[in-house]
Design a protein around this nucleic acid. Structure first.
Length: 389
DNA sequence: TCACTACCTGT
DNA sequence: CAGGTAGTG
């Protein structure tokens, strides 16, 4: 059986690229709720699906390491990966680029084509938007905003992903009136049930995100209700159907080029997509760095930390208040306001509170308890399914 | 423009 | 109630 890759095991297929932690923190960026599909599969190792393949990522002080798994329809050889590299493994981060140097005979059994190497590096750079200099942005935001400056020191390296628009849209339709841990479970079940299987690692089956045509099938609503999606099941199916039936195949691509507000309004026409979800999709997958998703939490931040007047007298987050708060932050932070917002959002998450007291994150702090319960619930769901039929 | 409600499900 | 949305008055 295949295992999740471990950098310390010295597999020769690990590749790397220069990237200081101040520009990217995997734990914060992947764990702050902008994506729901990456897990810490080993200490500091994050595994997830990106562009139809399974990746494990980890980092040292100045280097980002990546490992891409093979599966059907994927040429790369994977055997021989348990092998140790001869001599010391350079974890010092001195090497900034390329694959670990390996002996000729090993190279044959655990090959990484140079041209693939390049492409994968480009994919990673695109996914993490490494062309955007986060250090410069932090400096600018800190200059304008003392409160940001305070928290930014602890929460460096929080960066916006450039996600697949389909996955992003349908994930955030699920986010309504919901919390992160449950959303993660829902997305897992969605991919497991409707997505293409990719590979299996240590008993964990990885699937691609379901394609639009599959999501648009009329049976999907019922199936998703059985998976515990509640009223969101209909939104998902309907939105997919509308996109498939009344928009061209490069609809999302065109939204990437469209101005922010046009893109947001277009998305809003889909069922289950309000201002908040539309802004998430704009910011996280459609290159709209100025989009600021305002949820109840961000609203609290605006009032508490910025004494932002908007909506201080209102009881609910109305459209007007929503827009006022977004404008407030855009004025404060500028064209990358959405990126700045995610830093503060991240800093406010309960799971990252320990960082503020200088306590490093431990991998299994949060999860152990939940896994047990999950099994119980799956059983419960099975039962109610049988009762219905 | 704002308030209120229903909507699924789990903590 | 939970990182909302849609429909109503």
């Amino acid at each position: 059986m295949s295992h999740h890759a471990l950098l310390s095991a010295g597999c020769t297929a690990w590749r790397s690229l220069s990237c200081p932690r101040s520009e990217l923190r995997l734990d914060l960026t992947l764990g702050c709720g902008q994506t729901f599909r990456w897990r810490e599969t080993a200490d500091g190792h994050w595994t997830g699906v990106m562009r139809g393949r399974v990746w494990t990522l980890t980092q040292t002080e100045d280097v980002l390491w990546y490992y891409v798994y093979s599966h059907q329809g994927n040429q790369e050889a994977e055997h021989g990966c348990e092998r140790k590299v001869e001599g010391e493994l350079q974890l010092s981060g001195k090497r900034s680029k390329g694959i670990i140097e390996i002996k000729q005979e090993e190279a044959r059994s655990c090959t990484v084509m140079p041209e693939l190497d390049n492409k994968d590096e480009e994919l990673l750079k695109d996914f993490f938007q490494l062309g955007v200099n986060l250090g410069d942005l932090y400096r600018d935001w800190s200059a304008e905003d003392p409160h940001f400056k305070h928290t930014a020191n602890i929460f460096r390296g929080v960066r916006m992903l450039r996600q697949d628009p389909v996955e992003c849209l349908f994930s955030f339709i699920c986010s309504s009136n919901n919390h992160i841990s449950r959303i993660q479970g829902m997305i897992d079940r969605l991919c497991q049930t409707l997505g293409n299987p990719l590979c299996k690692l240590d008993d964990v089956a990885y699937h691609d995100f379901p394609p639009l045509p599959v999501l648009s099938e009329t049976t999907v609503e019922m199936r998703l209700r059985d998976l515990g999606f509640g009223y969101r099941a209909r939104f998902l199916q309907q939105s997919a159907q509308i996109i498939v039936n009344s928009h061209g195949p490069d609809w999302f691509q065109s939204l990437r080029c469209a101005p922010y507000l046009l893109a947001r309004n277009t998305l809003r026409a889909l069922p289950g997509v309000g201002l908040k979800v539309a802004d998430c999709v704009c910011l996280m997958s459609l290159d709209k760095s100025e989009a600021v998703p305002v949820d109840t939490h961000v609203w609290q931040i605006a009032k508490r930390d910025y004494s932002c007047a908007a909506g201080s007298s209102q009881k609910t987050l109305t459209d007007k208040v929503y827009k006022d708060i977004g404008d407030f932050f855009r004025k404060l932070w500028g064209p990358y306001a959405g990126w700045a917002h995610s830093v503060l959002f991240c800093a406010d998450l309960k799971r990252f509170q320990k960082l503020k007291e200088g306590i490093p994150l431990l991998k299994d702090d949060k999860k152990e308890v939940k896994n047990k319960k999950k099994r119980k619930m799956n059983k419960k769901r099975e039962n109610s399914k049988h009762q219905r039929t």
